[in-house]
Design a protein around this nucleic acid. Sequence first.
DNA 1: GTCAATAATATTGTATACAAGAACTACAGA
DNA 2: TCTGTAGTTCTTGTATACAATATTATTGAC
Lengths: 219, 219
Amino acid sequence: MESSRSDQIASLLEEQILTGRFAPGARLDEVSLAEEHQVSRTPIREALQRLLLSGLVEHTPRRGVFVRQASAVEIMEMFEVMAELEAACGRLSAMRSSEEAVERLRHVNAGCREALKNGDADAYYEENGAFHHLIYAQSGNRFLENETARLHRRLKPYRRMQLHLRGRMQQSMDEHDGIVDAIAKGKAEVAAELLRGHVGVQGEKFHHLLQQLRLDKTG
Amino acid sequence: MESSRSDQIASLLEEQILTGRFAPGARLDEVSLAEEHQVSRTPIREALQRLLLSGLVEHTPRRGVFVRQASAVEIMEMFEVMAELEAACGRLSAMRSSEEAVERLRHVNAGCREALKNGDADAYYEENGAFHHLIYAQSGNRFLENETARLHRRLKPYRRMQLHLRGRMQQSMDEHDGIVDAIAKGKAEVAAELLRGHVGVQGEKFHHLLQQLRLDKTG
DNA sequence: GTCAATAATATTGTATACAAGAACTACAGA
DNA sequence: TCTGTAGTTCTTGTATACAATATTATTGAC
């Protein structure tokens, strides 16, 4: 079941869905996929099974598997949960962080600042991801780390939209500094609150995301 | 994939694992299960796939699927995440609760009190579950509701241990009252804090759970 | 008697075959 | 032109067959 082939195929399909090769609503045809991957239908079906639980696709009996069309509401809900999970990571990180951990956080954050200075959005995107994943890890709770990373991954396509908001990179950077500071000083509630605000989608971010989702739908 | 048979089998297997028919570490033999359910190996494999992502079982290539032996550390981690998710539900519930919602919460809580008065642990367990699920729902975030319910379900076998702690039912009940009160008054942070403490495993609860896990392992 | 090597066995992973149900098309009638 | 129906085709869901690998048993040497 985690057999090499179906495992690889599952990862690949997930990646392709997230990066938009399969548009929302598209059907994942078993025979086409089988031909494409030079394999029988069986491993394809096993791979599709794996995607089901992740919420990326949905299945209608006797109809097939379709790429899930997440509604705007649903996406907002996921961001809200994301904010809460990140807040939890932040709280625990602040409670448990060592001097060394803080140092690593500062180092990654410096990478963000560097990317911002260069105006390199892609690099910032990468460094920003590393920054957040580091906070997940420093929560000291592996389970929380995995769950948070899972949702992070799930929201990937929508998060990218956010960065293109005018001035968002600079604001994001400022928020990072505050977060690092709170964690360094062991201020758990402050760290949680800052991360919740940092990740959450309110105000202008909210409208921007809504607009992007609408554009995405019509065009 | 959500085909009637493999779907039913997946749910059944999950239930059986959670209720302990398959001990942790046990192998889930495809042919035995196929015979038992009067079906070929194919639907069994599809059902096992579904269990993989939930973390209930793990798979070793060319070896088979085994019921996952969650370590004590892992269980503690899950409880910690549970506490955070419940806190999030509580916060959002408090922010969004209507008069009617609070009324329903009070009603279910009265059911808990009734069960406590009768000293009926099973009934309390049921009512307590309903109480918490209601809070999940009243968060107004379906995604959060589902994710929280999922973890709640996952922790079911371990939560049952907790209730047998001497005096735990009464204490749990007292905490419920405070939670309802906070939600009713829209005190988001208080509700969150109370729920985090209510669900979290610290102090005596911690030692009790650890002890139970050890007993469970040896005997 | 113990260990190692090899053969036998069993179990998973994949392919293919078949059955049941859904979607689509063609055609008749209004 | 639109609608309803019957038949065809296509796709999924399940069973079975086969291949590859892991496990176990057996045999032989020391």
